[in-house]
Design a protein around this nucleic acid. Structure first.
Length: 932
RNA sequence: GCGGAUGUGGUGGAAUUGGUAGACACGCCAGAUUUAGGAUCUGGUGCCGCGAGGCGUGGGGGUUCGACUCCCUUCAUCCGCACCA
């Protein structure tokens, strides 16, 4: 009987769907397990073999947990708002909702190309998803709740005393009774006001004040404006001064934007990393992004002015080493304090600095540049005058945009001082700073008044204490993390539940949600540069706007993905974003699999929203994803042909010579069998190649060159899962993707090895069909083979090693084949442990054993150590650590006896060369080592 | 510059706590079977050497009876951050 994988796979996929085999049960008495992969953006290009890698691993783990008796939740959905659908809409006029639906459900695009659809592509791989929980972020009944969460963020403030978000009413109550003087909140810069001030204000005035406290707030902020895309970008959407998508230039622009006060959560986002099981690299990237530094904020008076310069320093202990100050060229005080005779030099420098691109300013480290303002600051302790300079090594965007320069303790300050001939004060005991600065914190402070003879750590505390006592400043913790801009000038995103009365924003009532996207004539900005939604008239909206106009911006891509894992628990709830009892049962995601590229985007924002929802008491946990694995990228394996530039002939790889001048051309990998090119297909591929002439290998074949590239259409190296499922079956594809190597590693795609995995499944099939099934009791050897497989597979999966179980299964099937094993008890358990990897063939063979229930309801077998213990052990006998021969000895033989037997063995004499062994090491059941 | 990851046959990789390096698979070689095969089966395959033997986990050093594994140092590749005060 043939292994007809196509028929089998179709049959069982249908069975699972009809029987709802993988439905998760809310509030079961079983322990829960929540397995999740990052949901995809459904692009028109469809899935290639790299996409399912993480899905397959997650599915294997979910099926494994189910066999272990867990109530498993493994859902799937789509992050379906996004730029490509909108770009396509701009080009074709087609509503993005339509193209999005086609990309998911299948159909044809505008040019008549058939799009299989994500759903179908996923279905043929045989995932155990509970499809009844599917969510699309672009569906109104989903984004209704994204809007609702936005409203919660809008209606909350961050109380630093209780260290959590609280309802805005608790804040307005305090304002009404005592003003804001005693409020310790995460806020924008605000003036102090009294209760009577507040109570006397108009509604609009109160609203504008509250924006300084709301966690979702509107403010004029410098944003990364991308003219080509017509939108703002978040910091993590900008790479090297250009947009991450499309590589368009990005400039700084002041705009009125919605922002998220994520900075309020900086410390908790940092601390939370200690409680979750993620890779060090992702945690480090997040720590870096949050960028905590501790030190002091210190104020320096400007000589002859009323102004003060605020600096942030991590080394307040070196304050007596300050010999000058440096402001960023963009610092607001520069123009005010510059003296007349320095004006020209400063203006010239400012201009030069502004002309330099951000990149140049960063890369040009060797050239020390700067200019003297002519003004001086007063050292708060010594009263000495210190010169104030500007220099582009000080960044306006970090800290206060000003530094107190301590040349003896900071190399950049040292370089600056040396270059401009400024005094370098040495405040370190017994340390030479004539050649370079000394930045280590192990020095003892000298020449520093009350800090003398203190080691740095103690001196930092003493300095902060004294600075605070004398009122020059205070201890401060600084974060690099910025509030996240939350507006996009786009159509295809969540509309804000916001309307305006004049310039004052108000939230829509809950009863009106969702505010859906109105139809518009074009998906482009208006002539006045307003976002596309400004094209909609008031009456085009599905809600009655109570004010002058609705909000024209939409939410960014990360809005919907920041909380989707919660919606899967209760996807159809129309009264709440998730029912309390459901989230109390399912809690956070136990295993999350996805790409590492979301380190500072999605993975940071969902942690932020989770903590916020926790603060308001909606969910019982602070971290969304307890354990995370980042799957590696599967790279494309491109095929190249070599064209001789002079003769125009296509030369096979092995026939090239060093004198030739060849251009390499990417060719479609589907025209290859192994590395051999189908030359006829090549000729028919393009008009240009119709008359191609070849120089072939001696055996008459044309061999292509290979190159590892990113998998992409332009390199003709895209391998779709569909083709492979058609040719080898989903079970083969699943096993092969795992067999390729460790999940986390990047690896090139290579179909060469897939036949080996396919052969293994065929061999398994034959095990059940060649000799019939026997009810006989199994032999010892058969039990041993099975149980060592159970043990190894379980141990591997428990440490998330997905590649090694495949080899383990192969070994087991090879052994059972050699033993001609057809015992039902053995094959039965083998199928169960194999079923997470190859579920279709497992179900089919399971049925041939007489079972009527799905194998997914079976119980993962327990291995029995008894079957694994052996009476004899084959000892490797080594001499000076080098293995020479093996000796089979009883497992329970004492080390002393083993030593005797080994020394008496005739083979030993050869390696002793007549000498007496110095020492014999015997490790029971491991090894014998004779030291000569 | 700082931080993180990776480095093992012709190839993908295995070796979980230091104990026979190269499991399993691809490829290759030889053979069997078949009308045929991109089917199936058997045997071989780290490198050097006719052999005895020697050498081998990016390089160098160390600890140890014994090191892919631990320590020091160095190189290469990839990723993140970067005048961060």
């Amino acid at each position: 009987m043939q292994y007809q994988f196509n028929a089998i796979e179709k049959k069982w996929q249908q069975y699972w769907e009809e029987h709802k085999t993988f439905a998760a049960e809310d509030g079961s008495i079983k322990p829960k397990f929540y397995a999740l992969t990052m949901f995809p953006y459904p692009s028109g290009a469809g899935l290639h073999v790299g996409h399912p890698l993480g899905y397959i691993a997650c599915d294997i783990y979910a099926r494994y947990k189910r066999l272990q008796g867990f109530n498993v939740l493994q859902p799937m959905g789509y992050d379906s708002f996004g730029l490509p659908a909108e770009q396509y809409a701009i080009q074709t006029g087609q509503h993005p909702a339509i193209t999005t639906k086609t990309n998911i459900s299948g159909g044809t695009d505008k040019d008549g190309n058939v799009i299989p659809g994500y759903r179908k592509q996923l279905d043929i791989i045989g995932f155990s998803y509970d499809w009844d929980r599917e969510v699309w972020t672009s569906n109104p009944d989903y984004y209704k709740w994204t809007q609702w969460i936005f409203k919660q963020l809008y209606n909350s403030w961050y109380n630093k005393d209780s260290d959590k978000a609280e309802r805005i009413e608790t804040l307005t109550d305090i304002f009404a009774t005592e003003g804001n003087a005693n409020i310790n909140a995460a806020s924008s810069d605000v003036e102090t006001f009294s209760a009577s001030d507040w109570n006397g204000w108009s509604e609009d005035q109160k609203q504008l004040m509250l924006l300084n406290y709301r966690i979702a707030y509107l403010s004029d902020t410098w944003v990364n404006w991308c003219p080509a895309l017509g939108t703002v970008l978040a910091n993590d959407e900008v790479k090297d001064g250009v947009s991450e998508r499309g590589g368009h230039p990005v400039e700084q622009k002041l705009m009125r934007q919605w922002s998220m006060r994520i900075t309020a959560y900086a410390e908790r986002l940092l601390q939370g990393l200690e409680t979750i099981d993620w890779t060090d690299s992702i945690k480090d990237i997040q720590r870096n992004w949050i960028g905590k530094s501790q030190g002091a904020s210190v104020f320096f008076d400007v000589d002859g002015h009323d102004n003060q310069i605020e600096v942030f320093t991590t080394r307040p202990d070196t304050i007596f080493g300050v010999s000058f100050m440096v402001l960023a060229p963009e610092h607001e005080l520069v123009d005010q304090i510059t003296t007349a005779d320095q004006k020209e030099a400063i203006e010239a420098y400012k201009k030069a600095a502004s002309l330099k691109s951000e990149r140049d300013r960063q890369s040009d480290i060797k050239n020390v540049t700067g200019a003297f303002t002519g003004a001086c600051a007063i050292h708060p302790f010594t009263g000495d005058k210190v010169q104030i300079w500007i220099g582009d090594y000080v960044l306006a965007s970090y800290g206060t945009g000003a530094v107190m320069a301590v040349p003896c303790g900071d190399q950049r300050d040292w370089d600056f001082a040396t270059h401009f001939g400024i005094e370098i004060k040495n405040i370190f005991k017994d340390i030479d700073v004539s050649e370079a600065a000394y930045a280590e914190k192990d020095a003892v402070i000298a020449n520093s008044d009350f800090l003398n003879d203190m080691p740095a750590k103690k001196a930092i505390k003493a300095a902060i204490y004294e600075i605070e006592q004398r009122g020059f400043g205070k201890g401060k913790t600084q974060y690099r993390l910025r509030d996240a801009v939350f507006s996009r000038q786009r159509y295809w995103g969540e509309p804000f539940p916001i309307y305006y009365k004049g310039d004052v924003p108000y939230v829509m009532d809950d009863s009106t949600l969702p505010v859906t996207l109105p139809e518009i004539d074009k998906y482009l900005p208006t002539e006045d540069g307003e976002p596309p939604l400004a094209r909609a008239k008031k009456e085009d909206w599905n809600v009655t706007c109570p004010g002058d106009r609705m909000e024209y911006n939409t939410m960014p891509g990360w809005a919907g993905s920041s909380w989707y894992f919660l919606r899967y628990m209760d996807p159809k709830n129309d009264g709440e974003f998730v029912a309390k009892e459901k989230v109390d049962y399912w809690k956070n995601v136990d295993l999350y699999i996805g790409g590492a590229e979301h380190a500072t985007g999605h993975l940071l924002y969902s942690r932020f929203w989770t903590k916020f929802l926790y603060d308001l008491g909606y969910i019982p946990f602070e971290e969304p994803f307890q354990k995370m694995i980042n799957q590696g990228m599967i790279q494309g394996n491109s095929a190249l042909v070599y064209r001789d530039q002079t003769s125009g002939k296509y030369v096979s790889k092995g026939k090239r010579d060093s004198s030739g001048n060849y251009s390499s051309i990417h060719v479609d990998i589907n025209m290859l069998e192994g590395d051999r090119l189908d030359t006829e297909q090549f000729k028919n591929w393009r008009e240009d190649y119709k008359n191609a002439e070849f120089i072939l290998e001696d055996d008459g074949s044309y061999i292509c060159g290979r190159e590892i590239d990113k998998m992409s259409k332009s390199k003709y190296n895209v391998q779709t899962p569909d083709d492979l499922v058609e040719k080898y079956g989903a079970d083969t594809l699943r096993c092969y993707e795992m067999f390729l190597g460790p999940l986390e590693q990047h690896k090139p795609w290579d179909t060469q090895g897939i036949t080996g995995v396919h052969g293994f499944l065929k061999k398994l099939w034959r095990l059940f069909h060649d000799n019939g099934i026997s009810e006989e009791a199994p032999a010892k050897e058969e039990l041993k083979s099975l149980h060592k497989t159970i043990k190894k597979v379980q141990e591997d999966l428990d440490r998330y090693a997905f590649n090694t179980p495949v080899s383990t299964f192969m070994i087991c099937v090879n052994e059972l084949t050699a033993l001609k094993c057809n015992k039902k008890v053995i094959l039965n358990d083998l199928l169960i442990i194999l079923s997470p990897y190859a579920p279709h063939i497992a179900e089919e063979l399971w049925a041939t054993l007489g079972h009527t229930e799905s194998i997914s309801s079976a119980v993962f077998p327990k291995y029995n150590e008894e079957y694994l213990t052996e009476s004899n052990h084959k000892y490797p006998i080594s001499f000076n650590g080098k293995m020479r021969f093996t000796l089979e000895l009883p497992a329970n033989m004492s080390p002393a006896d083993i030593e005797q037997v080994v020394l008496a063995d005739e083979q030993t004499a050869k390696y002793l060369e007549g000498k007496t062994p110095k020492k014999v090491i015997v490790v029971p059941k491991k090894i014998v080592n004779v030291v000569v």
